[in-house]
Design a protein around this nucleic acid. Sequence first.
DNA 1: TTGAAAGCGTTACCAC
DNA 2: GTGGTAACGCTTTCAA
Lengths: 336, 336
Amino acid sequence: MSSSDLRKPITARQLARLIGVSQSAVSRAYTPGASISSEMRRRILSMADSMGYSPNAIASTLSKRRSNIVGIVVSAMQNPFYPVLIEKLSRGLQQVGQQSLLFNLTHGADIKQQLAALRQYNVDAVVIVSAAPLSGAALSWATEGRTTIMINRTVPDSGLSSVCCNNAEGARAIADHFHALGRRRVAFVAGVPHASANLERQHAFIERLAELGMTLSASVAGGEYSYEAGYRSALEVGRAGHTEAIFFANDILAVGGLDALRDEAGLSVPGDVAVAGFDDIAMASWPRYSLTTFRQPLDAMVERTVQLVTGKAEPAETSIHLLPGELVVRNTTAGR
Amino acid sequence: MSSSDLRKPITARQLARLIGVSQSAVSRAYTPGASISSEMRRRILSMADSMGYSPNAIASTLSKRRSNIVGIVVSAMQNPFYPVLIEKLSRGLQQVGQQSLLFNLTHGADIKQQLAALRQYNVDAVVIVSAAPLSGAALSWATEGRTTIMINRTVPDSGLSSVCCNNAEGARAIADHFHALGRRRVAFVAGVPHASANLERQHAFIERLAELGMTLSASVAGGEYSYEAGYRSALEVGRAGHTEAIFFANDILAVGGLDALRDEAGLSVPGDVAVAGFDDIAMASWPRYSLTTFRQPLDAMVERTVQLVTGKAEPAETSIHLLPGELVVRNTTAGR
DNA sequence: TTGAAAGCGTTACCAC
DNA sequence: GTGGTAACGCTTTCAA
């Protein structure tokens, strides 16, 4: 118990010899449906327990050709949405016996080189949780035909499946909400301009504005999903004047924007300008911010992803799994 | 290029046969110091490239007995300090050719069962980034004598090495700072009561107060490191009255506390009460909070951890690697 | 320098 | 139900 033994762990073969059974028997004892008498299994497991034996997952991978490892590709995490998503995802995978191997993408560096490691470890599947620009070609090279799921993003013409919140629905809901509040001149603050989620929200929002006869008073891009970008962008929009409401492409932008509008531009929210975000991160519900937002169905998205990874949902059904979100109205869009 | 081939990747043997060399040669081509002619290596690598071959890391693990995988044990992440740490750590490991396998601990569930997977994958080392209660016994069982590093925590009598910020130094610096401001009645807000980092900060702070002849007006425990816990605790302390300064065990508590003090208790910070935290998370520097805090030397901690993992620093030297932090004075402790 | 062959610790298939 | 025996794809002796 107390010894920190550097000697290598006992193998199935040694354990088998110790009990006087075949090594195959040991393997069977650990294989759920295997044909083995319960007496034999009991004996083996009990001996294993007292000898501190547990099967070597790496060796098992080699022979089963399944690693029970999912590669998770992530990038910049200034956006608090991601850590939460990744934690939930990793826990969800763990529950179905899958481990998570993390791959960090560094912006600017050679994608192919960064994803090389992904090929070498026999991951069963790959989940992309990153807004970083990725070509379909690079992806299919890296994943080598393994099941690959993207969360909260799409890559056109890649044939890869995605699990997304209904961004367009959300953006329209925000537009409708602004309209119902009587705000007519509204602005949009983008995050990463070419990210698919950003584009979908932007297009649907602007389209809906037109349908409702509202005016897009300004449209700026923060360049990234961060507090600072939101802060800067809000000041830009604030200067534009006459804006009655701002839709930030996501919550962390909106939070930065709120601070800028109130504390630096001296505007009242929602008095002078209403504000809405997207995601519903924890901060959005902090009393200080109390941010109106469109909630992404995180748990459902993770659940669906896990199903796709384990093959319990048909990837063929639809390439893009669109899950419904929910408008959460808070103080930043209260009546004047 | 465009095909998403489900057929299994080419092996070293196939590649070798294709070129007309031995399989050993292929292996050598990928082994830095191996004795192989540069001509042979060139031929193999070029063929490998055009055939899309790359060595199977799992198989390599089995024969080399090194996986180049580090297990990272994490738990609750409401504290923004952790995602940042984990990202930096994972990137640092990646740079030295190590991958990160994530293990999530769920509070309350059976530790041993949760760490079982850790044993089965042949991780080269284990890094514990979690404040969750862990016994030395459970740990050494799970790690089976592999090098194990804990970040930002210690487990007494475990003999395991830790990389920590100098918590006592930081807590004393905060006390000194409060004293210099002329605040005499000060309070402490704890996070996870029995976490080692929390205890160290608490003890050093209170001790220093005594040395300086200051008064501990209140001491409450939030129970966890979260915004909500900070918010609640601040209200409790606020009611106690006569408190001139509050030291929160970390930044996320302090941020919650600030909102509570200002927006709910109607107190002015730093006018009525000064506030300090610990960590220097991103939020601490947001203009809205501008929180005085003690900065943990994240990069240095990660660097040291990577050195320990790769064996470039002697684990034997000191069991606890104490790295110096830095007091960062901001508006929450400005003069009245 | 190169090739052949013996592991590494499993699983899977085959007889019994 | 059980035990032998090939894989799995690589690294590492050992000879040549």
